[in-house]
Design a binder for these strands. Structure first.
Lengths: 252, 252
DNA sequence: CGATACGTTGACGGAAATCAACCCCGGTGG
DNA sequence: CCACCGGGGTTGATTTCCGTCAACGTATCG
């Protein structure tokens, strides 16, 4: 089965970070992929697994996580439409983190073999995928700075800015608003905070007129203010088009 | 100038994570590189730079960092002999972090052009370098978990374990001891802790008989104990040889 | 010799965790 | 139909880990 009808989201994502010729787009579109619908709160791969395929998020929210000694969970990154949560498995045999769905998801699976042979034929696609994995790493480094140096309010503001920009790239932001279906406990696991403290910080952000957040929906009310509180600089997302990093300037 | 006499450290590092044929090793050894000695506490590249070359650490300690709003610094990773601290610049135009020396260093610079043309000629080298950058990302994710979920003592213990394994791979560990020339303030910037608290935690780790640390030298006294306190699992380093991840079992 | 960097110690304060309720709401099943 | 339940959100009281401030010791170096 070919996932042609879904491939636009992958293409759109790759094109936001690299240039593709029309033949390259065709090569990506005709990649054999296997589209699957997965319910919420399911593991896609687990720590220790040795996947033989990579997964593309077509719809829904996916996250990667690590469990530490006392059972606490750290969410290490969030993945949205167009992202490749386990691209690393193409070159790292065993998974050092788990990957799961936060919401019902539509996922496309592409075998390592198909990806590898495409990469051998086309350096520019190799480079684009390599670049995608480097951006993933850049996001992880930004999270290190976020967790290591910023206070709770700032961390959450930074995360909201990141998600607005990343979701904007794939057309999931309208007028500074987007779906963001994380529970407060999941925000806590992502930002290294307790649920209770997340709740209080959200109230402060709401009270300051920066955001509204309810029913899994984020609405940014003051983009510049939120950026300032979150100390957000979109450089680390390495978008080709810098305008995409200033969602408040984009037409909707 | 060819850096043949230094290339063994790069080869050794790449071989610890991927297989190389002798032609591939030759290709790496004959890569045109420019060897430079740099004093301690110098920036190699700064946030916002657009490098045209990548740097290989031959000797010394290098780190990457980010400065956040109020001037605080987060050290995002440490790099030792064999590491490529700014490999990302091969595919990401502008640096989103700075890179600096902690000690006097010997560095080899390789132009992006040379690296790119080598990659075009040889997929296996491309894949090995890609793999190196994915391991970098895996380390960053592990740091996210470290900063987000572990307490101060545990974070430091985890860092010590990581450095023992990574330095062991390039032959810089003898009998569970290595150079680790970070000041307590630098440990703090790396682990998101204040200098004072680093100091107190180090005393606890020393008091518990797990390590001794002085004069820029780390001696692990109880590897299993340190691993336990640090909740350390070397999977995330993705070494080819699992024995290298258990330094206490290795002959010295 | 003073200057400076690094390490150490004590006192104090604060950000965030923990503990424990309680509310609201949608689902479900007796 | 309504009682019950569980998940998510909210709140207050209390605790704890860690940061900040400030002082002091020690070693190195120009």
């Amino acid at each position: 089965m070919y996932g042609t009808q879904y491939s636009n989201v992958l293409i759109q994502k790759i094109e936001s970070i690299a240039d593709l010729s029309s033949e390259e787009k065709l090569a990506l579109v005709t990649l054999p992929m296997h589209v699957v619908e997965v319910a919420a709160d399911q593991d896609i791969v687990r720590e220790g697994d040795r996947p033989s395929q990579c997964c593309v998020v077509l719809e829904g929210f996916v996250y990667s996580y690590k469990i530490v000694a006392d059972g606490r969970r750290q969410i290490a990154s969030l993945y949205v439409a167009g992202d490749l949560p386990d691209l690393q498995s193409l070159h790292l045999e065993v998974m050092d983190n788990g990957i799961g769905t936060m919401t019902p998801c539509k996922l496309a699976f592409i075998s390592h073999n198909a990806l590898r042979s495409l990469c051998e034929k086309n350096h520019r696609i190799t480079n684009a995928l390599w670049r995608a994995s480097l951006i993933d790493a850049a996001i992880a480094r930004e999270w290190v700075a976020n967790l290591g140096q910023r206070n709770a309010q700032s961390r959450l503001a930074h995360l909201f800015c990141e998600m607005i920009v990343r979701l904007g790239v794939v057309g999931l932001v309208d007028n500074l608003a987007c779906e963001l279906p994380l529970t407060q406990s999941e925000f806590g696991d992502a930002m290294g905070l307790s649920t209770v403290h997340v709740n209080r910080c959200l109230q402060e952000l709401r009270g300051a007129g920066l955001i509204s957040l309810s029913n899994n929906r984020l609405q940014v009310l003051d983009w510049d203010g939120l950026k300032r509180i979150g100390d957000f600089d979109p450089t680390f997302l390495h978008l080709k088009d810098p305008k995409a990093a200033s969602p408040s300037l984009l037409p909707s």
